[in-house]
């Protein structure tokens, strides 16, 4: 499972790096943003209200966003742990941090609960600013680590502080697993309600589970798998790290539509 996921992640990461290199060589006008479904979500407003696109938003962004909605309804936030290159990079950095510290470092639960809601604030801010101050322009680029990092810190909207955001997210991911995805990513906020409904989800078999709690520790999102009958948590990305480490075969299984 982990091998399959790593292959898929590597392919998407390689794809976005290839676009970045081709862009730097002047071989393409495309950037990582060309394939970003969040732009499709932002575009819905102008599309429905003005029947036009603004900035660089276009039909591909919207199609990718619609696909993301379908994917999330079926497989929860698998986009984050199988597709998104920023998720991949944070995951790998987080694993390096886990090796160094011997475990994932997590904020206290009360703090974590508050931080978990920050991404909704970010989402409202991004939408509000895009359709007022930024007048339909994707001004979020300057703050978006995906754009900042995968344009090689060279994107035409990368400002001086963008560099700090990009590097800051990468460094923070070493100490707090999936820090951007978990607390700040506006696309993650959009996916949350759909992810809760996600049809492909993990079920714990209490008859086989020994309550060892190893799965809880392995989850980069700090989801309490060991006490759940079914993992419905909105943050579950179906990365299956918990299944990977579970010593009891069959204690954790994926179910589709409850089967």
């Amino acid at each position: 499972m982990r091998v399959l996921r790593t292959i898929v992640q590597t392919l998407f990461l390689a794809g976005v790096v290839a676009v970045m290199i081709r862009g730097a060589m002047g071989l393409t006008a495309s950037t990582c943003e060309t394939y970003c479904p969040f732009a499709g979500f932002v575009a819905l407003y102008s599309l429905l209200r003005y029947k036009t696109y603004t900035c660089a938003m276009n039909e591909l962004h919207v199609a990718l966003f619609v696909s993301l909605v379908a994917l999330t309804f079926v497989t929860k936030k698998s986009f984050c742990s199988w597709v998104c290159p920023l998720g991949t990079v944070q995951e790998w950095i987080g694993k390096a941090g886990r090796k160094v510290f011997g475990r994932y470092v997590r904020p206290p639960i009360a703090v974590d609960r508050i931080l978990l809601n920050l991404k909704y604030v970010v989402l409202v801010l991004v939408l509000g600013l895009t359709w007022t101050v930024w007048q339909g322009h994707l001004g979020f680029r300057a703050y978006d680590p995906f754009y900042i990092i995968f344009t090689g810190f060279q994107g035409h909207e990368t400002l001086w502080f963008s560099i700090f955001i990009g590097i800051g997210v990468l460094v923070a991911a070493f100490f707090v697993p999936m820090v951007w995805c978990r607390y700040l990513c506006p696309l993650s906020a959009v996916m949350d309600p759909m992810s809760r409904a996600g049809f492909l989800r993990l079920r714990r078999n209490p008859g086989l589970c020994t309550d060892c709690g190893i799965c809880d520790e392995a989850c980069p999102h700090g989801i309490p798998v060991a006490t759940a009958d079914e993992v419905t948590a909105r943050n579950c990305t179906n990365c299956l790290e918990c299944v990977e480490v579970c010593p009891e075969k069959g204690a954790l299984e994926l179910t589709l539509f409850g089967k």
Partner: peptide
Amino acid sequence: KKVIVIPAAI
């Protein structure tokens, strides 16, 4: 085996 649903759906 259901894990294959994820890359297939993607």
